[in-house]
């Protein structure tokens, strides 16, 4: 058995005959941070969703923490797991969505304690204590009684991270956690993620933030059209890409980032006047 926390072998997924993942192989070690890069529509979101079974895969296998997801192997024959068993497998995986998906009818603290109390069976007092610690960790202890609508996008995403951490996941999945944010709010979310990586969390992060990928990722994986095109250390892939598709993508991202930075600078300058 390998020691990898996530092991995906030849994963395929199609939507109504349209093959979106065409045989993905990926291992993620304990405490490793992997950044998934790739153009829009390349299947990054779909792959993350397959790992925590929000989508069922059509072929291949995914193991998380040594356990086959979605199916049980009994004497060489695969048996579909029950919904209850799948829910149990999801509990060890935290997911952070592009659009936050906080529960709008619950306060920040209620969002965080919802799963520990109603799924994990912890007492309310215990969960509240832990929830406040987590909100403090993402810098929001003073916002615990606010509803999501009363928080900025960056604050909402940090609450979403705290909510995912509340179930003590072994693995965290981030699907473009900063791309729905105003540019000036991106930093606060990336800071939280950086700290999480330093504390040893295993993370798979879909992102277009090259600075983050370069500084934080142990490995960068470039996907295009449902396949892994190349992977390696961030400096190798980002600064010295081998494949034409990677080069094209990276130069386009670089342009966009520069445009964004210029726009942000212009806005900040305008505010100073």
């Amino acid at each position: 058995m390998s020691t990898a926390l996530v092991q995906a072998i030849n994963v395929t997924k199609n939507f109504h005959g349209n093959e979106v993942l065409k045989g993905i192989d990926l291992d993620v070690e304990q405490r490793e941070v992997v950044c998934l890069l790739g153009p829009s529509g390349s299947g990054k979101t779909t792959f993350l969703r397959c790992i925590n079974q929000l989508e069922t895969i059509n072929g291949g296998r995914i193991w998380v923490d040594g356990e086959l997801t979605g199916y049980e192997d009994r004497n060489g024959r695969l048996h579909r797991r029950t919904n209850k068993d799948i829910a149990r497998q999801r509990r060890q995986i935290g997911m952070v969505f592009q659009r936050f998906n906080l529960f709008p009818h619950k306060t920040a603290l209620e969002n965080v304690v919802e799963a520990p109390v109603h799924v994990g069976g912890r007492s309310k007092a215990e969960a509240n204590k832990r929830g406040l610690e987590l909100l403090d960790r993402v810098g929001l202890s003073d916002r615990c009684d606010h509803y999501p609508a009363q928080l900025s996008g960056g604050q909402q995403q940090r609450v979403a991270i705290a909510r995912a951490l509340a179930m003590d996941p072994k693995l965290m999945l981030f699907d473009e956690p900063t791309s729905a944010l105003d540019p000036e709010l991106v930093g606060e979310v990336l800071t939280v993620m950086r700290e999480l990586a330093q504390q040893g969390m295993t993370m798979i992060v879909v992102t277009h933030e090259m600075g983050f990928a370069r500084d934080v990722a142990d490995r960068v994986v470039f996907m295009d059209a449902g396949v892994v095109v190349e992977q390696g250390a961030p400096t190798d892939v980002i600064d010295n890409p081998q494949h034409e598709r990677t080069k094209t993508f990276l130069s386009r991202i670089r342009e966009e980032t520069e445009e964004h930075a210029a726009a942000l600078q212009a806005r900040l300058d305008a505010e100073q006047i």
Partner: peptide, 23 residues
């Protein structure tokens, strides 16, 4: 209700019934 709500609940390990009732 936004389908993302159900997904967020599922990702936290909630059963369909619990997600329906609580979320």
């Amino acid at each position: 209700v936004d389908p993302g709500q159900n997904e967020a609940a599922a990702a936290l390990g909630m059963s369909d019934g619990l997600a329906m009732r609580r979320i």
